[in-house]
């Protein structure tokens, strides 16, 4: 059984790490874009972001003061056991959120949607969100936090099979141009595209594609992988760079996730994970040991299964 205080420690540590340290895959992605960016202003912005990440890590201060909406993704090993159960774990996550808000500090962003009341700790009704997944044949628990911006860069549309890849490309461009102007979505971003599912699954998959996969990662379906690369290039050929200035840097990468959907429909969602792509993961082992990393490894073969049964082979 994993002692609950291990989760207090792990959740706080990843909140801090996510807020302060840019994940290396994203940093390297931006650094390589600096060389390809021929426009003065766009290039200046990218270089300033590199400076900002260095300042954040050096001073141990948040890289961006807009904390976004801090949330958690939990992957529970099928053989894991948690002291106090899942309710205790959710409590630990809420505590870590409040503690990180005070101690890092993070901006208390979470308010009631109508009364605008702010408890100054990023905790409230349905906040932070906690999404659960499972993994067969292991006894660890992965705790991932993501602090994604909450205002711009996401859209959803119901397309139909007849709209085809054209429809996907058009909506993808619509979303990137709409939110890329003036840099509202804080590009260059990791772009996540959700295809299929029901409306909520479509949104969920796209968001997870943006936030839970690393730069350079490809979908295991080779045709989807090709489409990811095509959409990435398409974004970087809009003629737009950071802040909506003339340039060629919109997408650090593009990730697509799919879900089986209504036979008559092809819903799509597009999400942008910004210049402060904040994610961090802790694996809490059965013996209480904690390992930290920046790759959530969320989309396992089990997550993407298409069969009725799952064999452990």
């Amino acid at each position: 059984m994993i002692a609950i205080d291990r989760f207090d420690e792990a959740a706080f540590a990843i909140m801090q790490q996510a807020a302060i340290d840019i994940p290396e895959d994203y940093r390297l992605g931006i650094r390589s874009m600096v060389d390809g960016e021929t426009q003065d202003l766009s290039s200046f912005v990218l270089k300033t972001m590199l400076d900002n990440w260095e300042a954040a890590s050096g001073d141990r201060r948040p890289m961006c003061a807009d904390t976004g909406l801090p949330r958690y993704y939990i992957k529970v090993g099928n053989d894991a056991s948690i002291e106090g159960g899942f309710v205790a774990l959710e409590r630990a996550l809420r505590h870590a959120t409040a503690r990180a808000t005070q101690e890092v500090p993070l901006r208390p962003n979470r308010v009631h949607p109508l009364w605008r009341t702010d408890s100054n700790n990023n905790v409230g009704i349905n906040a932070p969100e906690v999404e659960w997944s499972f993994e067969p044949n292991v006894d660890w628990v992965d705790v991932t936090t993501v602090h994604k911006g909450g205002l711009f860069g996401t859209d959803y549309r119901m397309l139909f099979p007849g709209d085809g890849i054209d429809g996907i490309k058009r909506f993808y461009l619509d979303t990137l141009v709409a939110f890329g102007k003036r840099g509202l979505c804080c590009q260059p971003a990791i772009i996540g595209v959700g295809l299929g599912g029901s409306k909520d699954t479509c949104m969920q998959l796209g968001k997870q594609a943006a936030c839970l996969r690393t730069v350079g990662d490809r979908n295991p379906d080779s045709k989807i992988a090709d489409l990811e690369l095509e959409l990435k290039d398409m974004a970087n050929n809009i003629g737009m760079g950071p802040m909506g200035f003339v340039g060629s840097s919109m997408a650090v990468d593009c990730h697509i996730e799919v879900g089986y959907t209504h036979t008559g429909g092809m819903p799509i969602s597009v999400h942008t994970f910004c210049l402060s792509s904040r994610r961090a993961t802790a694996r809490v082992h059965a013996d209480g040991k904690i390992e930290y990393r920046t790759d959530p490894r969320w989309f396992t073969p089990y997550m993407r299964r298409d069969t009725v049964d799952w064999s452990a082979s």
């Binding site: 200046f44 807009d66 950071p242 802040m243 402060s276």
Partner: peptide, 14 residues
């Protein structure tokens, strides 16, 4: 005047 990036929170914090 526009901020840069956006999100040079650490540089501005300094």
């Amino acid at each position: 005047l526009t901020t840069v990036g956006y999100g040079t929170g650490a540089l501005l914090g300094r």
